[in-house]
Amino acid sequence: MKPARFVALLLRRLATGLITIVGVTLVTYLVLAELPGDPLAALTPIDQRMALSVDQRAQLRAELGLDRPVLMRYARWAGRLLGGDFGRSVRTRRPVFTEIRRRLRPTIELSVASLLLVTCIGLPLGWILAKRAGSRADTATSSLLLVLYALPSFWVAIVLQNLLAVSWGLLPLYGRTPAGGDPGLWGRLPFLILPAACLGLHQLAFYTRFARNTALDGINSVHALFARACGLREGRVMLTHGVWPSLVPLATLIGLILPSLVTGSILIETIFSWPGLGRLFYQAVLSRDTPVVLGMTVIIASLTIVGSLVSDLLASTLDPRQRRGKEAEL
């Protein structure tokens, strides 16, 4: 692709991405405004003496702009966001940006670990299975993958936690670092194994099967047959007709995993007390901490857009045939 066209494409995608973010945040804002429930729930305990007086509640509502029409509120919020201000959490009164930043690193660690699991174990395994299609190893592994996919991941998390951490004491039970100081990335690794494995479990099963099936279709295709007839060695056939084409749809799909790793981890984070963004988000939604929910929405939406852009670019780089078609549709 020529650089100029590439830049133009990138700009066009960023522009549509921006529109998507506006769309998502607007819809989220409207939905949040209509949600039943006390907007100051985060500050109002039901089971002990009331923290806020009637006047304080009125004042906080004014501070949050709850007495203004919802579209005006959205405009004000969006204006501040452009200036880099995400607002303050209702519950903790700390800036939303601070709240998110504090939990960003654990989330990235967990996401990267489970992505690595999918790409470094899942894909090669899928290709190997495709190469040995029909063998007993293939059959056994394929059925195991079906089984893995069918297990609810949080249920697996609980069972594995009870077996490996509680009964056998092989892995840490919860958390990200041991009490008494951070031992560095290497020392934190055992803490990462169970959450990352449980979080990546379904994706691992899904993508391994996917890689196997696409690669298998590729090496059984007419083109592959022709290549073999021309005297190409089997390894090369596998690479060009099995591995390579299976990367294209995979690139598309992996772009879609990115946002789901952030939001999909609520259950795993709860079970393993992992200090990530998922729990922050869950707690914020339940306690109607609107500024935090919106801040997270912006982040998730951006990740989705970046993910889909990256996967489209990857796909068009990997598959020259798609370039024309892709560009036409972008």
């Binding site: 299609a133 029909g134 063998s135 007993r136 293939d138 059959t139 056994a140 394929s142 059925s143 195991l144 079906l146 089984v147 298998l216």
Partner: peptide, 14 residues
């Protein structure tokens, strides 16, 4: 096509 997922697997494989 690949072997049949459940039938041809030895019961202990899993």
């Amino acid at each position: 096509m690949a072997g049949l997922a459940l039938r041809s697997t030895h019961p202990l494989t899993l």
